[in-house]
Computed example of a mutant assay.
Amino acid sequence: MAVTDDEAAELIPSGRITVLQCRAHWVRTYLSKAGLLESPRRNLHVITGKGRDVLAAKAERIDIRFLDTFESFRDWRVRASSEPAVPESCRKCRRPLRQLFLRPMNPIRFVGSLTGEGANKGVFVTTLDFSREATTYVVRVQHRIRLINGQRLAALMIQYGVGGRVRGTYTIQTVDEDCFSDSTG
C-alpha cells in the first residue's frame, strides 16, 4: 500500500487513533467474522485454515463482496445492520458495543464487570457527573473506558434526536448580493 506520512498520521475525529489504525482494526474484525483470522489473545492475530485456503486460491480482491461468500460474515452483517443507524460523524471508525450493562454501579465495579465478561473496553454513562477519583481511576486501569456524564449525555441526545421532539424549525435568509450585481462590469 502506498500510504504517505501525512495519511498515516491522520487521526479519526476522536483524536485517539489514526485512520490507518482504525481501518486495520476493521480489516481484522471483518476477516475474523468471515473465519479467516482468529485472535487467541489481545494483539495476537493468527490466520485460520480457511484463511490459508483463501490465500492459496490467490483471490484477486478481498472485499465486502468476497467476504459475503462466507456464511459467518453474512450472519454478522445481518446482526450489525439491525442495530441503530450510526451518525455520519462516527462512521469513520465504528466500534459497536458487544454487551450492555444496565445496573447502577461505580467505576470500580464497572471495571470488575468488564473483566468478568472478558471485555477490555466500555462506556460508563451517568445522568450526574463523575468524581475526580472516578476519572483518575479509569485512566489508570488497563481497560479502555469512555465516561459520559449527564451534560454530555444530554448534548448527545439533542445532537442525535434521541428522547426529544422538534417543536419548530427556523430558516434564516440573507440577501444574495450576487443576484443584484451588475455582471456586465
Rank of each mutant, 00 (worst) to 15 (best):
L147Q: 00
Q173N: 04
I17C: 03
Q21S: 09
T184L: 13
I12V: 14
D75Q: 15
H25E: 11
G122C: 10
N43F: 05
R91Y: 06
D129R: 14
A9I: 00
T184S: 14
E88R: 11
F70G: 15
L44R: 12
V78S: 15
T69I: 00
F180Y: 14
F101W: 07
G51N: 10
L128P: 01
L55T: 00
R98F: 10
L55D: 06
T115A: 07
D182S: 05
R52H: 13
S14K: 03
G15K: 02
T171Y: 12
V166D: 00
R95H: 08
S32T: 06
T136S: 15
D75N: 14
A80P: 02
H45A: 12
L11M: 14
D63E: 06
S181F: 07
F73Q: 05
I172V: 06
V125Q: 08
L100S: 10
F70E: 13
D5K: 06
L97K: 07
M105C: 15
R165V: 02
F130P: 02
V86K: 12
H25M: 13
V86R: 14
A85K: 13
G168I: 04
S82Y: 09
N106W: 03
L128Q: 13
E133G: 13
L37Q: 04
I62V: 15
E60G: 03
L20R: 03
S89W: 03
K92W: 08
E60T: 08
K58M: 06
V139F: 08
L11D: 04
M105H: 10
K92V: 07
C22N: 11
G161H: 01
G35W: 00
T184W: 10
Q99H: 08
R140G: 08
E10I: 01
T169W: 01
Q142E: 06
I12Q: 02
M105F: 11
R152D: 09
F73W: 15
C22K: 08
I62L: 08
N106Y: 08
E117S: 14
A56T: 07
S131M: 13
L11A: 06
L37F: 08
T174L: 12
V86G: 12
L11W: 05
L128D: 15
T171L: 12
I145V: 14
P107N: 11
G51C: 11
I172D: 05
Y30G: 00
I148D: 03
G15E: 02
C179L: 10
V27Y: 11
F66N: 03
I62F: 02
V162W: 00
R167E: 02
R146S: 01
C93D: 03
V19C: 01
A85C: 07
E7Y: 01
A57E: 09
S39D: 04
A57D: 10
P104L: 05
I64T: 08
G150L: 08
R74C: 13
G168F: 12
F130I: 07
R52K: 14
D68E: 14
F101C: 11
V111Q: 03
S181L: 11
R79E: 15
P87V: 04
R103A: 14
S89K: 03
L102M: 12
A2I: 07
R146Y: 01
P96E: 09
A154I: 04
D53L: 14
L102K: 13
K92E: 10
A56Q: 11
I17A: 01
V138C: 12
I145D: 02
